[in-house]
Amino acid sequence: MSGWFLRSAVAVTSIIMLSLGPVAASGEEVSVTLEMPSGHSAEAAYWAGEPDMPAILIQHGFLQTHHFPTVRRLASALADSGFNVLTHSLTLGINQRTASLPCEAVHTHSMPKTREEIATWIDWLHTRTGQEPVLIGHSAGSVNLLDYLAHSPEAPVRHAIFISVTFFGHGEAAFESPEHAARARADLARNDSGLAEYALGFCRQYVTTPTAYLSYYDWDKQRTDRAFQTINTPSTLIAGSADDRIDLEWIETLRQHGAEVRIVDGANHFFDQMHEFDLLDEIEWALHRHQAQ
């Protein structure tokens, strides 16, 4: 673990030097490419904010990229507000992935590999800004951040904002079922780690290995709920009242675990149209509140 970290650190350092080159001007978007621990290169957009403003890392949803509109609008708006904003794309096993990965593609990524990439970017941002970043995740990206926070209790994270947070495993908006998980487990039991077709999240057809599949599938409602209970990072949950992909009632229950829950009335899963500003207002409100604390 320490070797991996050193190698990653060296890589991060070199890539920062290569990618940033001259220091980016404040509020200007620059492209950042980092080599992930898997060897793949990953891309991100970075806006250098005001020096005294918090650093923010925004994580996109399942199989998306940092170009996803909800993420992109949010990053741009926060950058305009002077925040240091980094939003990256997970490689999902593809070098410099720039497009969302279709459900039907062969999915070789897994939750642990994703966690490593998030850790790499957090480290980069922390190093870049010298601040403990605020993590913002959208949809399943919140699960990825939660997975990271759950596995990195010492992570240099100031605050975590989970937008439209959801979970894997059997649920109302997901196609996976216990049978898929059971088949994956059976395959694993037979020591069959080959590709198989499952369903996951909004993917009715999802080809991956049993291990990778289960790495997502196991982040079900209960595990997510437990993660909120266990992480040390102050958390804010923002959800739209019209989001049909989440379990809003469950979200409401998360208040009891100390999380701050903000419900935007009428917003859907992606906070489209007018709710884009509501979302931004909620986030800025949360950031200022935690900044003030």
Partner: peptide, 16 residues
């Protein structure tokens, strides 16, 4: 990008 993906995971190339 999935072609590039095959270069990284040639073991799944045939399936893909």
């Amino acid at each position: 990008e999935e072609v590039r993906q095959q270069l990284g995971t040639p073991q799944y190339y045939a399936y893909w």
